[in-house]
């Protein structure tokens, strides 16, 4: 599903440049649930953003679902993002003037799905994350956990092949974090590929595989026995 080879990325800051990713090699099969760990500043978000086509690598190969991702123009990139990828951000990134349901329906708007169907599908996903009653509330009227669940519903609504979550539980307390992880596990159970960036060991162990980033390379790549989040909620 995801295949990257010798990926490099550096940021230029004035005259000196900061080499963040120094040759990442990594493959993820369809249906995997991968945690990406590493100290702050180790380049986790950078990697995830490149995988999500939100950012571009300096060099290296990236193949997503058999499609080489290279030198894409904005329009093409937009199409792939819409078709292949779903994002879950630490800061939720919901549109503040749109209700929960409208937020969830938004990626479907860009898939040119008719309004009626959009709303039905949005409601379906909201129901899955347990927020059916909150469908018509604005993000400002929701708790952090609820917001993240709306964001998850939104990421799933487009039925992407890969879900990318950058510290989805970073802004949540542990109980809510487990609720969110429970959702992510359930989505994974249905066969979706999911990459989760996290700082927390317990969250990482709710995945099936953990990648440790250090000094711009993968330091350790291990399979783990998944801890089910449902037992904590």
């Amino acid at each position: 599903m995801i295949e990257i080879k010798d990926l490099h990325k550096s940021y230029k800051m004035g005259s000196n440049s900061l080499h963040v990713l120094k040759g990442i090699n990594f493959t993820a099969e369809s249906g995997e649930l991968v945690a990406i760990m590493g100290s702050s500043g180790s380049g986790k978000s950078t990697l995830l953003n490149i995988l999500g086509m939100l950012d571009e690598a300096d060099s290296g190969d990236y193949t997503l679902d058999g499609v080489p991702i290279k030198n894409l123009n904005e329009t093409k990139a937009a199409k792939y993002r819409n078709k292949f990828l779903g994002f879950i951000f630490q800061s939720f990134n919901l549109i503040n003037y749109k209700s929960a349901m409208e937020n969830v329906a938004l990626p479907l708007y860009y898939q040119k799905i008719p309004r009626k169907e959009r709303q039905e599908r949005a409601m379906k996903y909201l129901e899955q994350v347990g927020l059916k009653e909150w469908a018509h509330h604005l993000p400002s009227e929701l708790s952090g956990g609820q917001k993240q669940r709306v964001a998850i519903a939104r990421a799933m609504a487009a039925e992407p092949k890969v879900l990318l979550a950058d510290e989805p539980t970073g802004a949540l307390d542990s109980t809510t974090s487990y609720e969110v992880m429970d959702l992510i596990q359930k989505i994974n159970d249905e066969g979706n590929t999911i990459l989760v960036v996290t700082h927390e060991d317990d969250i990482a162990h709710m995945c099936k595989r953990i990648i440790h980033l250090k000094d711009g390379v993968i330091e350790k790549d291990e399979k783990v026995t998944q801890v089910r989040a449902s037992q904590y909620v």
């Binding site: 937009a78 199409k79 993002r81 819409n82 994002f87 990134n93 938004l106 860009y110 487009a158």
Partner: peptide, 16 residues
């Protein structure tokens, strides 16, 4: 700007 970023992450094309 941020909203535009979100929309683009969700698949909005520049022209849209």
């Amino acid at each position: 700007t941020r909203e535009i970023g979100v929309r683009k992450a969700l698949g909005a094309k520049p022209w849209s």
